[in-house]
Every structure is written in structure tokens, then in C-alpha cells.
Amino acid sequence: MNIDSIQNGVVIDHISAGKGMELVRLLGLDTSDLSVAIIKNVHSEKLGKKDIIKVDADVPFNLDIIGFVDPEATVNVIRDGVLVEKKKLTRPKVLKGVIHCKNPRCITQVEQELTHEFRLTDDGYRCVYCEAKAG
């Protein structure tokens, strides 16, 4: 399968297979006007299978979102067809406005315009308000 290489843009590579679509959604690429290629289940020496997202525009992404979905992914910035930057990711300690708390008893369900916020704990992300586990 061939996808044209991009001249100016961002390639998010080494995404664990199956997480590409979630990342597209959380980055808002599913509703944007940008040219986006989503490649699923590509063969990978390292991972067996992986997903890749190519965005044909040099736009800044919220690396916390990518680090939250898959801290092992790589973010490559391409300018004039050349790889100019490879960004390393970590799991963000705090995640604001990315995912929503699903606990019906949580204040985030009723408080006007309250940003949903999660903190990384020993057993994953928990809502800072009610401490319910994300997911």
C-alpha cells in the first residue's frame, strides 16, 4: 500500500495497532479540514503491527494527547520533504480537557464549563475531582 510522502507536515508513527482512530478523534482530525492519511495495521519490525497518521500541514499538536494514547508513538516533523524534528513523548502527569469523566456522581457532570481533568496515578488516570478511573 502506498501513501505519498509529505513535504510539510507531521507523521505520527509507531502507534500501537488499533489506537490510531482514537488518536485521530482526540486530536480532532476527524472533523478538521486538513489532509490526513490514517494507515492501520501496517507491518512493523518492532511492534508486529502499527498505525500511522500523516497530516499534510505543519500544525502544532497537543503532545499530551498523543502521550496519553500511546507514549511509545513517535512524532516526526517534516519540512521541505526532510525530517527536521523527532519528538519524544511521555505519559502526561495531568491531562486537561482531553477525556471526560464518566462517573454520574462527579461534579464535572453538572458544573458549567468545568474542564475535565485527570491525574496519572499508580493504576492509571483518575479524575482529579471524584478520583474515578478514566475509561
Partner: peptide
């Protein structure tokens, strides 16, 4: 009654807030 309401209060108050119970939290 909502869990986490006390944190919302504390983040918006200009005086100390004591949580006297926020739901089951």
C-alpha cells in the same frame, strides 16, 4: 452531593474551604 464539588469550591474561593462531605468521595 456531587463528588469533587469541594475541589471546585477550593479552586474558586478566596477564603479557606473545608470539605464537609462531597457525595461518596
Amino acid at each position: 452531593p456531587k463528588e469533587g464539588a469541594a475541589l471546585v469550591a477550593a479552586r474558586n474561593a478566596s477564603v479557606p474551604v473545608i470539605n464537609a462531605g462531597d457525595g461518596g468521595h
